[in-house]
Structures are given as C-alpha cells and as structure tokens.
Design a protein around this nucleic acid. Structure first.
Lengths: 210, 210
DNA sequence: ACCGTTTTCCTAATATAATTAGTAAAAACT
DNA sequence: AGTTTTTACTAATTATATTAGGAAAACGGT
C-alpha cells in the first residue's frame, strides 16, 4: 500500500532523488539524443540498478512526461521574465523570437521533447497537455492586445501562428546546423533582424498607425 | 566471399526484395515513428526472421542511410518537377515553400529522417551527406540568379536560409498540429500567402525593380 | 534503546531488440 | 548431375524495459 503522508525529511529526500534523476535524464538526452534515454544508463549514473528507478517514476514515459511539464514551465518562466522589459510591440516580437531560440539552445533536450516529436510512443498525459495549452493560450491573448494596437489585417491567431512558425524554423535550422553558436549568430541566428523586419511589415500592412 | 557479379535474374530478384524491405520500413516509420523502426517488426512484415534482413542491409543504420538518400533524391525530383512550371521569382518562391510542405505531408517518414534528427545514433554516411549537400547547393545557385533579378540587400545565402527557415517552420507546425489537412489548409497551411507576402516585401526592400 | 512500519534498493525473471556465427536448403550455373 | 552461389534459418550474445518478491536500512513512537 502506498502511504500518502511521509515525514518531511523522508519527503525531502525523496524529492532530492527525483530531482537528481531528472537532471541525469536530461544529461543523457542532451548527450545522446532525446530518444536515447535508457533506464539502465540512467541507473548507472545514479549508482543504482534500473528497477530501483521505478520507486520514483512509473516508467520511462513518466520521466518524459515530467520533463515535458518541466520544459513548458521553464519556457513560460523564461519568456515571461524577458517580456517584462518589453518596450512595445516591436520589442515584444524580438523578445519572443530570441527567447524561443535561446531557450532551445540552453535546453535542447527539453526543447526537442516539448516542441518536436522525437520519442516513439511518448504521448504527453492529459494533465501535461492541458498545462501546455494553457501556456500557449496566453500567447493568443497577448496577440489580441497587439492586434488592437496595430489594426492589422491578420487575426490574432494568425499573428501567433506566423511568429511561432518563424521562430521554430529559425531555431530548428540553427540547432541542426550550428548548435554551438549563441543566439543571434551564425547563418540562421543572424537572420533574426530580417525576420523581424518581415513580420513588422506584414503587421503594418493595412493599418498604418503609431 | 561476396560475389561481385550475379546473373541478371538473381540481381533483379534481389533488388525487388531490397525494394520491398524499404517499403515496409517506410510503412513502419510512418505508422510508429521514424525512430521506432525495428528489425523484428520489419522481418515480421516481410515474413522473414530478423537475421535474414542482414543479407540485404548491413544493419538498421544502413536502412536509415539508404532511405536518407532516397528521401533527398525524391525531394529533389519532386521540387525540380514543380519548378518547371514557374513563371517568375514570386511563383518560384511559392513553389519552393509549397513543395517543401507537400513533400513533407506526402512522405512524413522521409521528411523527418532527412530534415529532422529523430534517430539517436544515426549519422548519414559521407556519401549520403555529399548527395544532400549537392542538392542544397543548387538552391544557392538559384538564389544567386534570383538575387540578380532583384537587387535585394540580402545575400543569396541569406535568401535561401530565410526561405528554408520559413518553409521548415510552417511545415513542422502543420505536421505537429494538423497532419491530416492538405497543403494550404488549416491554421498553418493558410499562412502561406502571408509568408510569401513577407518574403516578397523583404526581397524588394532596397532594389525596387520589375 | 527497542519494535513495528515504511522506504529504499536489490536480485531474479520475462519479454523484446540488434546483431553475429554457423548451417541447411534452394536456386542457379556448368 | 555436380558444384557454387544465394537465401533464409536456428542458436547465441548482449542490451533494454518492466514486474515480482524480498532484504536491509531508516524512521517514528515509546
């Protein structure tokens, strides 16, 4: 029988172990590819045997699912933090695109897990999906505000989608070709200003203002 | 000892088997994910035992590598075919973007294998990489021509890269969210005109002509 | 300090996967 | 018909995910 309540010390210990398992899992995914996570290798790094991991997670998919939630949470934090300093819609666009890329560069394993589909058989749980939808929804709300400011022809949905597509395209290319270069540099990083300029132009297409 | 020359009949037979193995492999990758290809499942579908497959391929990575070359070859054919009808640089841009997306929709397994990195441990062979670079190089040459026609501020490299990033971004989003919808439809497919319009604007930015 | 309970980790076992070695049957060639 | 080549097999090796069941350590109250 699973005990619902444990002593604080036990619980802290448990959480510390869970945390270090997640860290080790991320390290493996970063080093060998997201889909290359193996319970054996994970156990090896934890100085454990593989079955012991099942005390902390119900299986490999549970680990992926937890990291999926962690990834979205971190990304949300990361972006929100950076958006505080925004000085207007142009700046906001720049921040959104740059944050997407730099988050991906700093956490490639979480990025791939959350925004690509590299693991056969992994489907985020209902709970995790809802979390991710909630975060994405905030984008649409922000876009709605931006739209009012701009009187553009595009719907707020379209604004979000084209910004995401642009960000994702630049990011994927950057990671595939020059993962070692920092954000803003390299064949694709250096295209950010051009991308921003394109987006600005289309956003101002019909409703010239501000 | 491997015999270098076989009778034509034997060779045709062999090639037919190789072909149907590749088809079966693609079916598995399409159904279960690119990284989910398994020699056992493949053998099952071929009515064979797994070790027999090693008569035709040196291993799973060899199959991936062959399909990688096939993917690039098919994409090249596909795009070249469609570009024949091009009526100018605007049309050419549209065709490039639409072809990228529709190739990905029609051959998701090859698309993912060639343009994403979903298989841990798979690195295309030297030969395959050279093939793919050769194909991509043709893009840069075409962009050089386009650039002369346009007198844009962007370099031909930049033109190619931003078109690729845009295409890839739209494609990845489309496949992740609405893989069943045909090219041009859905949340992301319907953004193609907007994307084209953005690209046109930036390409004409400094050198207004034609 | 002791004792029942909980927690943690283990070994053993099952099932599946990739790959190699060695071999038997079938097909092809002379 | 006899020899070679081709094809597919079984058996074995190594690695993986996961479950079952048990031992030892840690904990919590007395």
């Amino acid at each position: 029988m699973k005990t619902v309540s444990s002593s604080p010390r036990v619980q802290r210990n448990r959480e510390a172990t869970v945390q270090s398992i997640l860290d080790a899992a991320r390290a493996i995914m970063r080093e060998e590819g997201v889909a290359a996570l193996s319970m054996q290798e994970l156990a090896r790094r934890m100085d454990m045997r593989a079955p012991s991991l099942y005390n902390y997670f119900s299986g490999k998919m549970d680990i992926y699912d937890t990291l999926f939630r962690l990834g979205f949470g971190l990304y949300d934090e990361y972006l929100t933090e950076k958006l505080i300093a925004s000085t207007g819609w142009r700046d906001e666009l720049r921040i959104i695109i740059e944050s997407y890329i730099s988050f991906a560069l700093e956490n490639p394993e979480l990025y791939q897990l959350c925004f690509e589909r590299p693991v056969p058989g992994f489907v985020p749980s209902q709970e995790s999906l809802e979390l991710s939808f909630g975060i994405l929804n905030r984008f649409y709300q922000r876009a709605e505000q931006m739209k009012n400011e701009l009187h553009t022809e595009l719907s707020s949905e379209q604004i979000v989608n084209i910004v995401i597509a642009m960000s994702h395209g630049l990011t994927a290319m950057h990671i595939a070709n020059e993962p070692h270069l920092p954000v803003g540099q390299g064949r694709f990083g250096s295209l950010i200003p051009a991308a921003l300029s394109m987006l600005e132009k289309i956003l101002l297409e019909k409703g010239e203002n501000k």
